[in-house]
Simulated assay, not measured.
Amino acid sequence: MRHRSVADLMTPNAVVVQPGTPLREITRLLDEYGITAVPVIDEDERPVGVVSEADLLRRQTGKLGPSTAEAIMTRPAVVACPEWSAVRAARTMEEKKIKRLPVVDESGRLIGVISRRDLVELFLRRDRAIQEEILEDVLMRTLGVAPSAVTVDVSDGTVVLSGTLERKSLVPIAVRLCDSVDGVVEVVDRLTFAQDDSATQQTVTEPARGARYLPSEGERA
């Protein structure tokens, strides 16, 4: 199953300004396009900062100074990559307390912007839909875990896993796969295990989504 990335959700034709753009013009752009912030790009189209409504308000209530984007922008710009998952973008916004992320390519050039508004659809997924995907796709189909072995509770995107897996090495795999499901904000691990295989298994290979984990002969016995 393919999960939506920043590239799928971003607005490609981003509204931008240059360091020398006057504040009056920035205010007009925010109002015209109904946005709360705008990236500031240099001559190579690389983001050097962001001017937000909060930056404009601070300038109005503070001491007067140069009335350009460069004078008041927040720098450096916190950016996202197009291959990021929607969950990673949302977590970055939350950690940095920002509402929009410029998206850059491998050379650092701006290719779009992703905002909280772009992520709303994903994070409004009903908890029931997330629970069903984890039970059917992650646990049953991918890991081959019986539905009765693990309980999955979901509330506002927070997933709580409880129950018993056959082997200790499967616990972190299950947690990582659940964390990758669209709409999941956090995974709380309350899993236990029947067999501690950490002493005999040096490397654990995580199965690809859609590929089923096959238990060993000892586990099937």
Rank of each mutant, 00 (worst) to 15 (best):
I41C: 05
L139E: 00
E83I: 05
Q131E: 15
L9I: 02
E43H: 12
R117N: 08
L56E: 07
V204E: 02
L139T: 01
L29G: 01
V184Y: 07
V50H: 09
T151N: 08
L177R: 04
R109M: 01
R167C: 05
L29P: 02
E94M: 09
P12S: 11
A174E: 08
A149L: 07
R75V: 06
S198Y: 07
L56S: 00
L139A: 03
A146C: 09
V50C: 02
V185N: 06
F193E: 03
T74E: 09
P207C: 05
L30M: 04
I35M: 12
Q202H: 14
P76N: 02
L57I: 15
E186S: 04
T205C: 03
D44H: 11
D197T: 08
P47N: 13
D153P: 09
P82G: 07
T205G: 01
D118K: 08
G144F: 02
M1N: 04
T36W: 00
S148G: 13
G108L: 01
G112N: 06
G218L: 11
V160Q: 13
R190T: 10
T164Q: 13
E219W: 07
R117G: 11
S198D: 13
T21L: 03
V51C: 05
R167K: 14
R167E: 14
W84N: 00
V6P: 00
T203V: 15
I26E: 01
E121C: 02
E166Q: 13
R126P: 07
T151Q: 05
L124A: 13
C81Y: 15
L122W: 11
G108W: 01
S115P: 15
S52N: 09
A208F: 12
G218T: 12
V103A: 03
R2G: 02
M1G: 14
V145D: 09
D153I: 14
I98C: 03
M140Q: 14
S115K: 12
K99E: 10
P76K: 02
T68E: 08
G20R: 10
L56M: 00
G112H: 06
R88P: 00
L56W: 00
